[in-house]
Design a protein around this nucleic acid. Sequence first.
DNA 1: TGTACATCAGTGAACGCGCGTTCACTGATGTAC
DNA 2: TGTACATCAGTGAACGCGCGTTCACTGATGTAC
Lengths: 202, 202
Amino acid sequence: MVSRKEQKEQTRQAIIESAADMFREYGISGAGVSDIMKEAGLTHGGFYSHFDSKEELIGESLGYAFKERRNHWFRKLEGTDKMTWLKKVISRYLRGDHRDKPHEGCAMAALGAEVGREGEMAKEIVEEHVRETMTALAQRMPGPRPIRGKCAVGAGDRAVALYALMIGGLMLSRNVNSRRLSDRVLRSCREMAYREIEREEI
Amino acid sequence: MVSRKEQKEQTRQAIIESAADMFREYGISGAGVSDIMKEAGLTHGGFYSHFDSKEELIGESLGYAFKERRNHWFRKLEGTDKMTWLKKVISRYLRGDHRDKPHEGCAMAALGAEVGREGEMAKEIVEEHVRETMTALAQRMPGPRPIRGKCAVGAGDRAVALYALMIGGLMLSRNVNSRRLSDRVLRSCREMAYREIEREEI
DNA sequence: TGTACATCAGTGAACGCGCGTTCACTGATGTAC
DNA sequence: TGTACATCAGTGAACGCGCGTTCACTGATGTAC
């Protein structure tokens, strides 16, 4: 038996999860409050007893989607050695299954430039996610080994560029019609990512 | 003296250019027909004597924006040697000036996932642009030199991954609040791109 | 060259529609005695 | 345990607004004689 308060909290969470799915599938402006509520098995009227505005929901669901995905991808692989971990993250991110299911994938690639237009609040949430992702990737990056007198490149720098490559690759693969070209984009980006992490001299 | 027919063609082109700017700045759903017409110095009523629908304008302006940018970036650099050409394209793409002026920059990074939701027609236009860009980059890629018995990686594959890295990097840099982090994303991606094209063994 | 008429690019009011949001209401849950 | 009342999560009709789109109109440009 759950109390009314707990019940309401569960409903709120269901709306957030429904929104996280629908925003990623149809875009922020493409998923309306009514659609989201319907997807959560509710009618639109009750929405404003849970959130002040659609904007608030955007923030909540963006934060949720990012965190949930990090848990899904990162925690799941704990225990494996660094290089295996990196390779698995790369191959799971840049594969057809992820491309074909934006609603349960990376929100950055699914929403793209749209989040940047949602104002400071959304950018703050993105920024936190970028920092978390950077850290997680950087921890597994093979250490910098400067050669030929050049400065070593930091693991954080390499990590964030690797993430950019993955986002760009997934987005590109979703934006073309030809399945053949789309698959090629994924494979090419995977290969470039592998080259980057396997690189021994920097 | 221009004929009425020529005048109309010029007006049509002005609407396309206005749309290309506004879509990149505010997003496809964020820029309305009225806004676009006003930006072109017209009223909204005349729009439908030039285009059947907003969707047609999206196609036209997307195609225009892609082509105009390729001319701007690629033709401008003709004559320079391959490696210099590649480095200039990378550094011009991944710099603060491009990040801060989405309305005159790469439409792929500016519109992101939004184009993928616009249907087959838009994806066809994106695909043509991706192929053109791939070709232009691949022509300047240092030739594959297979070592240690591994298969050589094709220049086209390396080119499309490089483009993905640039798109992802620019988009990420636009989606965070902190200027410091944003600059770091650009620099890190530039460095990864340089490492990739300077690589001698593959 | 001048006059009368036809054309048509562009104007601006108006349309239906779906959006985010509000609100009076309902009926199940929780509380008081 | 039963009865009376209070609470409040969720409903569904309605609101204003801006969107894409339509259309009767205007007035400058082009054509015919």
